[in-house]
Computed example of a mutant assay.
Amino acid sequence: MDNQKAFDNALFGVRAQGRLSKSSAGRCAYREASGAKCGVGHSMPDELYDLGFDDGDGVNIKSVLGMDPAIAAHFAGCDTDVLDDIQIAHDSASDLTDFESRMQALADRHNLIYTPKQQ
């Protein structure tokens, strides 16, 4: 996994599911009951996901990386600041249009390639 792959997984994954991922309590979630995933959640293999990652009030990706060596190894090729910014872009977005804008700004900031949504 590298920065561009994590970014693409988030961008294209959230677009494909057509909505942001929120828990039943209204908090952002790596995985929600319906199967929707947050931006970073789209790069997290199902076999490495743990319910504890969504326990509490927004466990950030830097904490998750410290909880599980397998997750840390999976994301070893990614800059944690990029992962954190992907999470913030998702969790702070008010809707999908806002998410797109935040992801475009993130791409510019981290020298990643943003692919505009096809109309």
Rank of each mutant, 00 (worst) to 15 (best):
D2E: 12
K5M: 12
A6E: 05
F7M: 06
D8V: 07
D8A: 05
N9C: 12
A10M: 01
G13H: 04
V14E: 00
Q17F: 02
K22Q: 07
S23K: 08
R27Y: 14
A33S: 13
S34Y: 05
S34D: 10
K37M: 13
G39T: 02
V40H: 05
H42Q: 15
S43Y: 08
P45D: 10
P45H: 08
D46Q: 09
D46A: 14
Y49F: 14
Y49Q: 07
D50F: 00
F53R: 05
D55W: 10
G56C: 09
G56P: 08
G56N: 09
D57A: 14
V59L: 13
N60F: 12
S63L: 11
G66K: 12
M67V: 04
I71N: 03
A72D: 14
A72G: 08
A73N: 15
C78S: 11
D79A: 10
T80P: 15
D81P: 04
V82D: 03
L83C: 06
L83W: 03
D84L: 13
D85F: 04
I86F: 03
A89D: 01
D91R: 07
D91Y: 02
S92P: 04
A93D: 02
S94E: 14
F99A: 01
R102W: 01
M103V: 07
A107N: 05
R109A: 14
N111H: 14
L112Q: 07
